[in-house]
């Protein structure tokens, strides 16, 4: 089940742009740009969303010094209906494109597909990533932005951010993608859309366990195992699952969650951050930069996604979740 990339495609560069509220993120110093206008001077939230995707891609290309015409494939997705922001960004980028939807796990699923394309020699350079825009996503899944409903402590805050990576052929100086695990759709009977961390934690657990088992690794082989957006409670649950499976809690220190850390300890955001942009932004800025600086040598990035829609929730269905993982190393 685990995919081992013989050619070790490189994560050449990451471009991350984020919205105004994300200036409060503890990761904001690693982002390429923080905009004051969450609509990027566009008329609608969805147009702003599209612009954000384009700018993240521009940053990734600029850092690597490649042009649009050098890019062979563009892989990405978001959380809006039919993924129009990403689809429309693809129209403007004018690069062969496949839209992918794994909810908030899209950041990794798109990198996996891009790595496979690179592995088979079909692509020299590919852009892969994901994005989410708070206002556009909230209206999609929940209530109007200004509706005064009380969100429980378990709720998470959808991030306004886009993260896109430039994936290319193996090169020593960049982090290389060694292996990947495509997750199953896991459903543990959770049905609360304001408690996504609890729904997603089992998916992350299964994916991490299966990756470690098939790679013959233990948790301590990694400097960092970073999940996408489980939030503070979801991370607690994930650790709880590992403890129940017989792993000592001291061994779990490499286990961290981007969503839980994203806004620091700010209680306004309840359990933490979520959204496809959350994992994409943290993975492709903080993690890549720290790897190139030598802080981390081997990292497992696990993006988690809740595969629900407002329709399934109202029809009383439980929330199936998925988690995709990539193993990145740096010499």
């Amino acid at each position: 089940m685990v995919i081992v990339f013989q050619s070790k495609p490189s994560l050449i560069a990451g471009g991350v742009v984020a919205g105004p509220l994300e200036k409060r993120s503890i990761f904001s110093q690693y982002f390429d740009a923080n905009y004051d206008d969450e609509r990027w001077q566009m008329k609608t939230n969805e147009q702003g969303h599209r612009k954000m995707v384009e700018e993240a891609c521009e940053f990734a290309m600029k850092k690597a010094g490649v042009k649009k015409t050098d890019i062979d494939y563009f892989m990405g997705g978001d959380l809006v209906n039919q993924m129009t922001p990403t689809n429309f960004a693809a129209r403007d980028l004018d690069i062969p494109f496949i839209g992918l939807f794994s909810a908030c796990a899209t950041s990794i699923s798109s990198i996996i597909v891009a790595s496979l394309l690179t592995e088979v020699g079909a692509s020299n350079f590919a852009l892969a990533g994901a994005s989410s825009q708070h206002n556009a996503v909230e209206r999609q899944f929940r209530y109007p932005i200004n509706y005064g409903s009380q969100k429980p402590q378990t709720a998470q805050w959808t991030v306004t951010a886009a993260g896109y990576a430039l994936i290319g052929k193996h090169h020593e100086e960049y982090p290389s993608i060694e292996a990947a695990t495509v997750g199953k759709s896991v459903d543990y009977g959770m049905d609360d859309p304001f408690h996504m961390g609890a729904a997603m934690a089992p998916a992350a657990f299964q994916t991490i366990q299966s990756h470690l088992a098939q790679r013959n690794q233990k948790i301590y082989h990694y400097d960092l195992i970073l999940t996408g957006d489980l939030g503070q409670l979801g991370l607690k649950l994930l650790k709880g699952m590992f403890v129940e499976s017989g792993i000592k809690s001291e061994e779990l220190t490499p286990l961290r969650d981007a969503g839980a850390e994203f806004y620091g300890q700010d209680e306004t955001f309840q359990s933490g951050a979520s959204g496809a942009g959350c994992s994409a932004a943290v993975f492709l800025s903080y993690v890549i930069q720290q790897m190139r600086a030598g802080t981390f040598k081997r990292v497992l990035l696990v993006a988690t996604g809740a595969l629900l829609s407002p329709l399934t929730f109202q029809q009383g269905e439980t929330i199936p979740c998925t988690a995709h993982a990539i193993e990145i190393t740096m010499k």
């Binding site: 402590q153 543990y188 959770m190 408690h195 609890a198 089992p202 657990f205 409670l233 129940e244 499976s245």
Partner: peptide, 18 residues
């Protein structure tokens, strides 16, 4: 981990609404 077992864990971890 079984579903029931996980739901038990989830109950323990999730804070009760005040």
């Amino acid at each position: 981990m079984e579903k029931e077992q996980y739901q038990q864990l989830e109950q323990n971890v999730t804070p009760k609404p005040p």
